[in-house]
Amino acid sequence: MTAATVRRGTAFAPRAARIGLYVFLVVSAVFFILPLLLVIMNSLKPMEEIRQGNLLALPVNPNLEAWATAWASACTGLDCAGIRPGLWNSIKITIPSVVISTLAGALNGYALAQWKSRHANMIMLLITVGLFIPYQAMLYPTVKILSTVGMFRTYAGIVFVHIIYGLPYTTLLFRNFYVGIPDEISRAARMEGASFLRTFWSIILPISTNILVVVAILQFTGIWNDYLLGLIFAGNDNLPMTVQLTNIVGNSRGVANPNVNMAAALITAIPTLVVYFLSGRYFVRGIAAGAVKG
C-alpha cells in the first residue's frame, strides 16, 4: 500500500486509512527489528538447536553458553581468546579519539566562526569538501607519513588517524553552532583582555555542553563502528572489535558456530546501541545538525 492511497482515502474513509497507516508502520517496524531479533535469538541457542532448526526458529532451551564462548574462547585465526581483547582495544582507541577530535573540532570551529575574513569561508569550504573525499585517496600517503615517524600499525597511530580524519566533521558541526551564538560573549571577553585560547577554554566551552555531547555521541558511534581504518592502521596488537568480529566469523578452522558468531556480533554492537537508546534525543539532534550542512 502506498502513502498516496492511504492519504487519498482519508477524505472519505478516514478509519480504513488510519488502520492502513498503522499496518504499514507495524510491518516496517518488523522489517527493522527482524535482523536484531534473529541475532539475539540465535546467540541464546545451544549448538544442537542450531543444527536442527533454521535460524528463525525460537530457542527451546535458551542459555548463555555461546556468549561465554564468544567472550572468552572463540578463535580469531590462531588466537583463541574470544572478543574480549577486542573490546578493550576498542575502548582504548575510542575514548581518546572521541575526546581529542571533539575538543579539536570545537577549537577549530570556534576559531573559524570568530575569524572575520573572507579567507575563513574559503577554508571552511575546503574543510567541508574534506568530508567527501573517499578514504582511498588518502590512505596510502597516510600510511607513508605514519611509517616515516614510526607510528604505522601502533596504538598512537590509529588514535591519530581517527582524530585527523574526524576533524572536518567535528569542525563543521561546531562552526555551525558557534556562528549562531551572540558575538557579544566573545567581544566582552576580548575587551577584558582575555586571549583567544583563554576565551575558548573558560567562556565558550562551558556554554557548549549540548553540542559537545551531540558531537561526542556521533564521533563515538563512528569510531566504535569503524572497520577499515582499524584494519589498516591499528596493527595486530590493537585490532578493534569490528575487525576481530570479522576474524571470528571468517575463521575457517573448525566448524562454523553461528550462535557464537552472533553472540560476538551482539557484544560488539551493544556499546553503540546502549548509547543510542540512552541518548536518543541528542543522537537525533546530531544527525539533523550534521545533515543540514552550511
Binding site: 577549537l107 577549530n108 573559524l112 575546503l126 574543510i127 585527523i164 576533524l167 569542525t171 583582555g193 586571549s195
Partner: peptide, 28 residues
C-alpha cells in the same frame, strides 16, 4: 601562558588548516 596570548583566531585556524591540508589535500 594562556593569558599572554593575543586574541588571534587566525593562528588557530592556520594550525588546523595546515594539518588538514597536509593529510587531506597533500595526500590527494
Amino acid at each position: 601562558w594562556l593569558n599572554r596570548q593575543a586574541f588571534r583566531p587566525d593562528v588557530t585556524v592556520a594550525v588546523f588548516f595546515a594539518v588538514v591540508a597536509l593529510f587531506f589535500y597533500g595526500s590527494i
